[in-house]
């Protein structure tokens, strides 16, 4: 564990808490993509299968359980409790275009051709693009509630912190994980446009609005 990874993980944790807080306080999941949340459930379940056969640390164990649990809870809240506030007509990104290519990539790029390793690779690739339905929705509506943008910013910052973490690990431990690094950099790249608007507008107290 190093400083960057810890900050990244805490930012990830914060993003989920912000998301649940938004749903609870506004009693609505307006502006949130159900598809993105469903993809995160798939990401966490396929990646954390190792919970059942590998012990890493208490920290690792608790965080994995939290990510699986909270993502399922979010999906439940969106699907049942606050279902009427969710508008499927603007959540139209075709997730087949994400899941299919990620499955193919995972079959090609993995560290061992076994069920658990291919699923791990799949989860890494899928996570890198899971935010696209959400960003697509934002693009379509052209604006977002401030709390939703805080959620997205925390999620993007989490990925951004993983990059210095890998650089640090390369120099201190000699560890290089090309699949995680390439997918992680791509994933962070997807947030750049969003970050630009977030830091120039939302952080200055303005509403998140995309230029027409």
């Amino acid at each position: 564990m190093n400083f960057f990874r810890l900050l990244g993980d805490l930012s990830h944790l914060a993003s989920i808490l912000i998301l649940l807080h938004k749903i609870k306080t506004t009693r609505s999941c307006r502006g949130l993509s159900f598809k993105t949340q469903a993809l995160y459930v798939a990401v966490f379940i396929t990646r954390y299968l190792d919970l059942t056969y590998r012990w890493v640390s208490l920290y690792n164990f608790v965080m994995k359980l939290f990510f699986i649990g909270s993502s399922c809870a979010t999906l439940y809240l969106m699907r049942y409790k606050y279902c009427p506030t969710h508008d499927p007509s603007i959540d139209t990104f075709k997730i087949e275009y994400l899941v299919g290519p990620c499955a193919i990539l995972a079959l090609i790029f993995n560290y061992k051709f076994s069920v658990s390793e291919v699923l791990w690779s799949f989860s890494i690739f899928l996570e890198s693009v899971a935010i696209l339905p959400q960003l697509f929705m934002l693009q379509r509506t052209g604006e977002a509630e401030t709390i939703t943008t805080h959620y997205l910013a925390a999620l993007g910052i989490y990925r951004a912190f993983y990059i210095p973490n890998w650089i640090y690990r390369y120099f201190t431990e000699g560890v290089v994980d090309p699949i995680a690094i390439v997918a992680g950099i791509a994933q962070t790249g997807l947030y750049l446009d969003f970050f630009y608007v977030y830091f120039t507008k939302v952080m200055q107290g303005e509403k998140f609005e995309l230029p027409a």
Binding site: K64, Y111, Y162, V175, D177
Partner: peptide
């Protein structure tokens, strides 16, 4: 190989 990947990351 499997040893290359960072198993302790989330």
């Amino acid at each position: 190989t499997v040893d290359d990947r960072v198993k302790d990351e989330l």
